Simulated assay, not measured.
Amino acid sequence: MLGLGSRNEFNVEWQTVVITGGSDGMGKAVALQLSAKGANVVVVARTVSKLVTAVEEMKAKAANKFKQRFHYISADLTDPVECERVIAEVTTWNSGAVPDVVWCCAGFSRPGFFIDVPIQEHRQQMDTVYWTAANTAHATLRSWLEPVHPSAQMKTSRRHLIFTCSTLAFVPIAGYSPYSPAKAAIRSLSDTLNQEIEMYNGAYQRHRGAAPAADVKIHTVFPMGILSPGFDNEEKTKPELTKKLEEADKPQTPSEVAKVSISALERGEYLITTNFIGSLMKGTALGASPRNGIVGDTLLSCLSHLVFLQVIPELRSKTFTWGKKNGLPSANGTPAS
């Protein structure tokens, strides 16, 4: 409980890590910090110029500048074929070995009230938030879980698939209707895979017959606001009511979020939050999700439910009062004149 003598459950030294959305924001911060821990890192995004910059910065941060390797791939991860290409290219670059860690950070938020945002943009949010993660996970797990005959099996380190979600998957806020459902879908996918993967892990441990080459662990990170170029763009369309409702959210820097997340992974946590308010939000919605710790998460859940007995009615009341005072919003979410 005090962390004395605990084992590092996420040792990335000399491991090959793929980070989608790795050219900016949280994804780039994760890439830099894992390079400083000795990982070989591949960043994936669309914009080549940003990817080139990220690779140069990773080289400067590397724990061993002469032995670590870095690479970038430009890809549109809303296309599942592109995700298959990314995993294949990384495997070739990695001397025929599949990556050890895949961390899904791609996506963006376009806030707005449900009926004010064109339905095509709702679909785009689902594509760029949920489907980039689901496509990447599908391509990754197909490569990791391919059966290997016992005669060809070699001892391989545990592999990690990490999703990046949002505390909006626990507690939705008015004005995020294009975005929060996609994050909730990622959380549900993560819980399902967390259970499903045990079938493959059981086959791996059995040591008889064909089985995957390594066991796999699933994780999901739930940040709140992150101070990044994406956050700046988000503010441009965010309704004034939404800003009022999330006043308690004090955005963190990408480096802070990455550091807290990596530390939690090293402790072996499954559902990871990056500050105390986020943990309270998680506590309200643990449901059937696996716990990081039975005692700690049970106490957290009890405290969260007591706190949110007041918070949820307050959010609804503030929203009602806002409408009563300001009337219907204009197209950009501000009160109509």
Rank of each mutant, 00 (worst) to 15 (best):
L4P: 01
N8M: 00
E9W: 00
F10M: 07
E13G: 03
Q15V: 02
T16R: 05
V17M: 02
G22W: 01
G22L: 07
S23T: 11
S23Q: 09
S23R: 11
G25V: 09
A29D: 02
V30L: 12
L32M: 10
A36P: 02
G38Y: 06
V41D: 02
V42A: 11
V44R: 05
T47L: 08
V48K: 12
K50T: 10
K50V: 05
L51E: 09
V52E: 13
V55E: 05
V55Q: 05
M58A: 14
K59W: 06
F70C: 01
A75M: 13
D76K: 15
L77M: 12
P80A: 09
V86F: 14
A88M: 08
T92C: 07
G96Q: 09
V102A: 02
S109G: 08
P111H: 04
I115R: 14
Q125V: 02
Q125I: 03
M126K: 03
T132E: 03
A133Y: 01
A134D: 03
S143G: 05
H149S: 15
Q153G: 04
Q153V: 13
T156G: 04
S157M: 12
H160P: 01
F163C: 06
S166T: 10
I173F: 04
A174F: 04
G175P: 03
G175L: 04
S177G: 06
P178H: 05
Y179N: 04
S180I: 03
S180K: 00
P181N: 02
E196W: 07
I197F: 12
I197S: 04
A203D: 15
Q205Y: 11
H207P: 08
H207F: 14
R208G: 06
R208Y: 05
A213T: 01
V216Q: 03
I218Q: 08
H219N: 15
F222T: 06
F222I: 05
F222D: 02
P223V: 11
G225A: 15
L227A: 12
F231D: 01
K238T: 01
T242S: 15
E247M: 10
D249F: 12
K250R: 07
T253Q: 10
S255L: 02
V257T: 11
A258F: 11
S261Y: 15
L265K: 02
L265R: 06
L271M: 01
T273G: 07
T274W: 14
T274S: 12
N275P: 00
N275V: 01
G278D: 10
G278T: 07
S279L: 04
G287C: 07
A288K: 10
N292V: 15
V295L: 15
D297N: 11
T298F: 14
L300Q: 03
L303A: 11
L303P: 01
L309P: 04
Q310G: 11
R316H: 08
R316A: 13
S317C: 10
K318R: 13
T319G: 00
T321M: 04
G323A: 11
K325W: 08
G327C: 12
L328F: 15
P335N: 06
S337L: 12
S337N: 10
